[in-house]
């Protein structure tokens, strides 16, 4: 059952990705990338990562698409036909993909409970989170408490990125905008 859900989601994801690669209308590409994020959120639920799925659905499916459309409103909507041949990138991707697949062969099987990644810090967090922090959602406990430094850094990145966007595009600080009203 789980495998069927996985495979169907992957089939849709790959179809969406191919459609994104082939389409030249940028509005359609923006909408499809939102769809891709929504499907990815579905896959994350199937893989037990509900917090991640929640974030991906809200960020990738919602805000990301809005930013894309907001930027597209300021530029041409149609992509030019590519001038270079597609052969070299295709070969490069195939070679890279083959190398990655070769690399996965040594990895423990998908879902295996005695993979190295499941045997060290993971169970430790699961066992200690509730008695030490009193928070049943282990993801929240690790995010805010055990890896608090990490999250502080990530928040700083978001802060800096927002400040940079404001510096690049500018934002009027008055209550109304001076120009370009609708």
């Amino acid at each position: 059952m789980m495998i069927a859900v996985d495979l169907i989601l992957f089939a849709f994801l790959i179809l969406t990705a191919i459609a994104i690669a082939r389409l030249r209308n940028l509005f359609a590409v923006a909408m499809l990338s939102g769809l891709f994020s929504l499907l990815a959120a579905g896959l994350f639920v199937a893989l037990d990562a509900v917090d991640v799925a929640f974030t991906e659905a809200a960020v990738g499916g919602g805000v990301s698409t809005i930013f894309m459309l907001g930027a597209l409103a300021l530029m041409p909507r149609e992509e030019k036909r590519p001038v270079h041949g597609a052969l070299l990138p295709l070969v490069l991707c195939l070679v890279t993909g083959a190398a990655l697949v070769y690399g996965t062969i040594d990895m423990p099987a998908f879902g295996s409970p005695d993979a190295p990644v499941q045997r060290h810090v993971g169970p430790e967090y699961l066992a200690r989170a509730l008695p030490e922090t009193g928070v049943p959602n282990v993801v929240t406990a690790v995010l805010a408490s055990y890896r608090g430094y990490d999250t502080l850094g990530e928040t700083t990145v978001i802060f800096v990125a927002a400040i940079s966007v404001l510096m690049i595009l500018g934002i009027s600080l008055g209550s109304g905008r001076q120009k370009g009203g609708e």
Partner: peptide, 30 residues
């Protein structure tokens, strides 16, 4: 720990909400 987690999550929430709204305003303002 419970208090600390609530407080830092609130901090994260405020920054993310303000950042996303500000970025939207920057694009929409143009």
């Amino acid at each position: 720990q419970e208090w600390g987690i609530l407080i830092v999550e609130l901090g994260v929430g405020i920054t993310v909400a303000a950042a996303m709204t500000a970025i939207f305003l920057a694009f929409a303002g143009r």
